[in-house]
Computed example of a mutant assay.
Amino acid sequence: MTIVNSLVNIAVFGIGGAIMVAALLGLLLVLSGSSRGIPPRLLTAFGAASIVLWVVLPALTALNEMSAGTGFWVGFAGASVVAVVMYAVNAAMLPMVARRQALVNGQAGLAGIKPTPSVLVGGLVICLAMALLVTGVMAFIS
């Protein structure tokens, strides 16, 4: 039963979070095509919303797992998978935003942005560290 609970948490929080991140990036794509461009405050708001989602949803996953009595490591695994799913969507969609911004602003350097393997691995390490942190906090709370 623990496996089913973990899969449900990953589906709800991971896929739901990935959809919310994709929606934020879609809005960013639409706004970047406007004639005025994107104001810096709006970019900051999008970044803050992404970070809040990226922290809160894995934390909720860990809390849900541990409140079911599965333990710290199962909560950490669930939080890690949710963080990695959201990171994968972000890493896949950000080059599209950069290309769109390059077309609007005429900056040719942005058009060829693609994440390197070292950047992707670094992001995965950050996802695991963040999942460990939020799982520890949730273990302390619950």
Rank of each mutant, 00 (worst) to 15 (best):
V119F: 13
A91D: 04
A102S: 13
M130P: 01
Q107P: 01
M93R: 10
A108G: 10
A108N: 04
L120Y: 03
S118P: 03
M86S: 06
A88Y: 12
I126D: 00
L120W: 10
A98R: 14
L94K: 05
A129W: 02
V84E: 01
T116K: 15
L110H: 09
A83D: 08
P95N: 05
A83G: 04
Q107R: 14
A108T: 13
Q107L: 14
V97F: 09
M93Q: 05
N105D: 13
P115T: 09
Q101L: 15
V85M: 11
G123Q: 05
M130A: 15
S118H: 10
M96W: 11
V97W: 06
G123H: 04
N90Y: 12
N90S: 11
A92N: 01
I113Q: 12
G109P: 03
V97Y: 08
A108H: 14
Y87I: 05
V97H: 10
C127E: 03
V104F: 08
M93N: 07
L103G: 04
R99Q: 10
L128A: 02
A98H: 12
V84G: 00
G123Y: 00
V84C: 02
L120N: 07
L103Y: 06
L128F: 06
L110Y: 10
L103S: 06
M130G: 11
V104T: 07
M86L: 05
L94H: 08
V97Q: 05
V85E: 04
G106Y: 07
A108C: 00
V89S: 02
Q101P: 03
P95L: 01
V84P: 00
C127F: 02
L128M: 08
V125R: 00
C127W: 03
V104S: 07
L103T: 05
V104M: 14
M130L: 15
N105W: 07
L120Q: 04
L103M: 04
M86R: 04
V121A: 14
L120T: 04
Q101Y: 14
V104I: 11
V89I: 11
I113C: 03
G123C: 01
G122M: 03
G122I: 01
M96K: 10
G109C: 06
C127G: 03
L94A: 00
Q107N: 15
P115M: 12
P95C: 09
V121D: 04
P95V: 07
P115C: 02
I113M: 13
A91M: 15
L120A: 02
A91E: 08
M96P: 01
G123L: 01
L120E: 06
L120F: 07
V104P: 00
V119L: 13
Y87E: 05
V97G: 03
V97L: 12
V84S: 00
Q101W: 05
A91G: 01
R99T: 02
S118N: 07
P115D: 07
N105R: 11
L110W: 11
G123N: 15
A108D: 15
M130W: 03
M96Y: 08
M96E: 07
V121K: 06
V104W: 06
V89G: 01
V84K: 01
N90H: 07
K114C: 02
L124M: 12
L110I: 08
M86D: 05
N105I: 13
G122Y: 09
P117Q: 07
V89L: 14
G122Q: 08
A98W: 10
R100M: 13
A88G: 09
R99Y: 04
L124C: 11
G106F: 10
I126G: 06
L94S: 10
